[in-house]
Design a protein around this nucleic acid. Sequence first.
DNA 1: GACATGGGTGTTACTTTATAACGCTTCGGC
DNA 2: GCCGAAGCGTTATAAAGTAACACCCATGTC
Lengths: 156, 156
Amino acid sequence: MSSLHDHTHCIADALTRADALCAERGARLTALRRRVLELVWSSHRPRGAYAILEDLSQQDGKAAAPLTVYRALEFLVEQGLVHRIESLNAYVGCAAPGNVHSGQFLVCEACGDAAEIDDPGVGTAITAAAAERGFRVQRPTVEVRGLCKSCQETPR
Amino acid sequence: MSSLHDHTHCIADALTRADALCAERGARLTALRRRVLELVWSSHRPRGAYAILEDLSQQDGKAAAPLTVYRALEFLVEQGLVHRIESLNAYVGCAAPGNVHSGQFLVCEACGDAAEIDDPGVGTAITAAAAERGFRVQRPTVEVRGLCKSCQETPR
DNA sequence: GACATGGGTGTTACTTTATAACGCTTCGGC
DNA sequence: GCCGAAGCGTTATAAAGTAACACCCATGTC
Ligand SMILES: [Zn+2]
Ligand SMILES: [Zn+2]
Ligand SMILES: [Zn+2]
Ligand SMILES: [Zn+2]
């Protein structure tokens, strides 16, 4: 997920899918929420709530309060349009909203990209390990730090 | 890891192992660091840095600054004596320091206990999923939220 | 013993991240 | 048009984490 792709497509697709999903569910993707989603998708790097807040202020001229952004993010996370990366206190657009999945991420230490995967092997391994101990899984979190392919090939 | 065990043993064992490990490595487990480790181990529930800070103040009478605790925690994490639970901004004692492992946790939403496991299946699944995508793993984080066995059996 | 060195700790101030409380506005069903 | 619920704005505050700098003290050297 280096910078070698047409990211405007990623953004456009994400917004289109969000529109469709929310319409289907009767969820209200308001102008503000849609704008925040767009800002989250401004790259494949997880962005902090306050970074998004700054974008809102600078690009839109509106001096919003933190709560404004946090509320929008809460909605987007609930709808599965955005994931929160716990180890970074940051948010990133979901690659496949609509599908049920828990969010597994490969986070590159060098470029900062967070690639979302939904590896069945990892999922079943976690479920099995939990079951073995009588633990009922509700929400698994998998965040793997390391080096992505392109950053290994192009060390800096 | 319900409250049905003699937790004083857990604490004593943890401190003994820490002493041995640090001696072996030439790392300095100072009085303060040892005390913080003891406070982290006061239960199997992850504790926040500020909660530990309060313990220090109240139980020891010393009004320490946040940095004091954070520095001690940093040392303990580096030595593998304590793990940080990213999704809780909290710290918990390591069940098996010395062994190389990455830290996988089953965190109960009801009682708050964080049971550490080191499931080879989960580990290899993550490594495989990463390798498949050319990603070099450095530090995997697995934090599973759900209900532990005893909390399922004794709903509140 | 004097001395330099480096790690550990204390202190103050500050940044970043997140939430509480309250009231006004707007949307959508009727 | 009216009403209830959901969304949003505003102010203040809490929680989590860091920076900068000085001091202390254990250790090894001369
Ligand atoms: Zn893209
Ligand atoms: Zn990278
Ligand atoms: Zn451990
Ligand atoms: Zn429990």
